[in-house]
Amino acid sequence: MIEVRSLTKAYGPRVAVQDVSFTVNKGEVVGFLGPNGAGKTTTMRILTGFIPPTTGEVKVAGFDVLDEPTEVKRRVGYLPESPPLYPELTIGDYLGFVAELRSFYGRKRAEKVGSVMERVGLSGWESRILSSLSKGYRQRVGLAQALIHDPEVLILDEPTSGLDPGQVMGIRELIQNLGAHQTVILSTHVLSEVEAICPRALIIARGRLVASGTISELRAQAPGGLWYYAELSGVTAPRVGGLPGVAEVEPLGEPDGPWLKLRVRAAQDPRPQIAAAVSAAGGQVRALEQRLPSLEEAFVSIVGREA
């Protein structure tokens, strides 16, 4: 649904995005991660046809953003970082205008406005003036603006920034309830958000794509990656370290009575060997589990790795 090939965008001498390639399939929800100023917004603006790429090829729904921008714009719904609202207008007038921009007139216009307001939970708010709305409601109106024409591709630039936890949940639910026919790219720097709603994520730093994959792939990619947590009795740390395949053993804090707490790294799953060794020594196993670094740790190590 979205194809980006060697995309580069330069503002004069400053290169904002450099040689980025990725594809997003139909129906996918993809998180776009990166520190501030990494090039997320620039990439999204190019996908929507707002600014042209310097070099590279960008196709949305099969149409090139440079050759057929109107076709792309028809199929894309876009929520910029701050919702694009006219503070003087009422919600009804504003969404009516947006509907007309999308070529819905007369009865169709009223229908579209009514149904999108219901979807984002604004029913009955037609005559509220936009400048009087709280941040959360402004964001909902912004989302309504992006959803009104039922776009195939939805591009959301930090849809939950600055909202309170309840509002964040509301917006997330909305995104999760979108139809399976809608492809979503959403940028954020709230990592728990990506874990909650995006099966796949792209990480961009200093204008380059530094990692992509499912959330667990990204977590495993972090330096160190996978490790094992063990609470054992009856053995010593060097004994565990001597087991075949175990690369590194590190005690985690003080032992809890007879229980030794260990961080074990190994090329292959060492749990059967550890359990066998412990029972051979007459000890016991209280915990033995596989651990992945958190997405935060993975993110910091991936983004930091490129520095």
Binding site: T48, F50, P80, E81, L85, L101
Partner: peptide, 13 residues
């Protein structure tokens, strides 16, 4: 300033 130009220019108008 309000960012609405971004909306106008990303709609098929």
């Amino acid at each position: 300033r309000q960012g609405t130009l971004e909306m106008l220019l990303t709609s098929p108008v």
